[in-house]
Simulated scan of single mutants.
Amino acid sequence: MLSGITIVIISRSDAVAVVVHRALKGRQYALILGLIAFIGLCAFVDLLSLAYLGFKLRQTQSLGAIPVDDLPFLSSYSHLDDMYKTGNVKATPRDPVMQLPFSLTQVDSSAPDKFQKPYPHVFKSPAGLIPYNERRTTITPEISTIAQFFGEDYGMENCTVVLTIPPEARPPKNVQMNALFDVWALDWSRTIDFRRLSWNNKPPRRELLGWFSAEGAPTQQTEPFACPSGTYQHIEVSCRAGPCALDIVASGIKQFTGIYMTQHQTI
């Protein structure tokens, strides 16, 4: 007689269920351990990456501030080239556009380090000094005039430099020798700080665009040259030969005398 012993009799199906349960439980443990190992490996790789990045940052010099004038110009006429290239879109004919210089000043070879005042002529008012809205084109054997233009319009990318000499600025008829003025394109793609411009630090001359004559037509222009949209065009007008003594003063936005630029349609 057996006492204190309990005998449990299970069926075959229950035994199989117990075995399967233990096998699944073992797989869960293995899966959890695998996930823990994978997460640990990822964390280790991240730590190594952060350490490497910190090491590189210590070796890299910090970037200085980028001057505003050195930033690239972003065109507002995006993808127009692709649209007109297909030939399916025809541009509306446009008349030439005359553009006054954005800035106009002089440089003097007899005072090569001298900066010209941006507003040499001012009006003394009770509220302070007010600069006159005037543009002066002055050319002598020592003094050149530098003008800054900007190609604003898309499809108007063929330009000419124009000189209009008013009657009061033309040489007297008894002058026996004619004065000639060279027109130079300067090698500079950014804006010019005219407050610090002198003969010694002006941009170098890149190309001779043409020349003007003091005794020529009242309005003369150079041969056309490329002026892509969104680019600065810097022009220098200097004395080539003869008694150069040109001094033209213009004011307002409608008086086109002296130096200015004309843009012609290219599409």
Rank of each mutant, 00 (worst) to 15 (best):
F256Y: 13
S76W: 15
P72R: 15
L100K: 02
I259T: 07
D193Q: 08
T138G: 02
I165S: 12
A147W: 02
I146F: 04
H21V: 02
A241K: 08
N178P: 01
L74C: 06
G87L: 02
K202M: 07
Q221S: 05
C227T: 07
E142N: 15
L100E: 01
V183S: 00
Y260H: 01
H234D: 06
N201D: 04
F102E: 13
L35D: 02
S213V: 09
K254N: 12
G210A: 01
L71K: 04
M1R: 13
I259E: 05
D193K: 13
I267W: 09
A147K: 05
K85S: 10
P120G: 11
T222N: 00
C159M: 03
H264Q: 07
G258N: 07
F225E: 01
F149W: 01
R94E: 10
I66T: 15
R206H: 04
I253C: 02
Q221C: 02
E207S: 00
V249W: 01
R170Q: 15
F123P: 00
G230C: 01
I66H: 03
I253L: 14
Q116C: 13
Q176I: 02
T138K: 15
V107L: 08
T262G: 00
W211N: 05
S251R: 14
N133L: 13
S49L: 12
Y132K: 04
D95T: 14
A127D: 12
D81P: 00
K202S: 08
V183F: 03
V19R: 13
S144I: 07
Y154N: 08
A147D: 02
L24W: 13
E134M: 15
S189W: 01
P172T: 03
E157C: 03
G155S: 15
D247V: 12
L71Y: 02
G54D: 08
V8W: 00
M83C: 15
A250E: 04
V97R: 14
N158I: 05
C42M: 12
T140H: 14
I192A: 07
T164Q: 07
T6M: 06
F115C: 11
R135I: 12
G26T: 09
S62W: 10
D81S: 06
T160I: 00
F256M: 11
A226R: 09
L50I: 07
Q176L: 00
E168Y: 14
T138V: 15
F123C: 10
A250F: 10
G242T: 11
P172M: 00
P72D: 09
Q28L: 12
L57V: 12
V20M: 01
P224I: 14
R195W: 09
Q220A: 00
I259N: 10
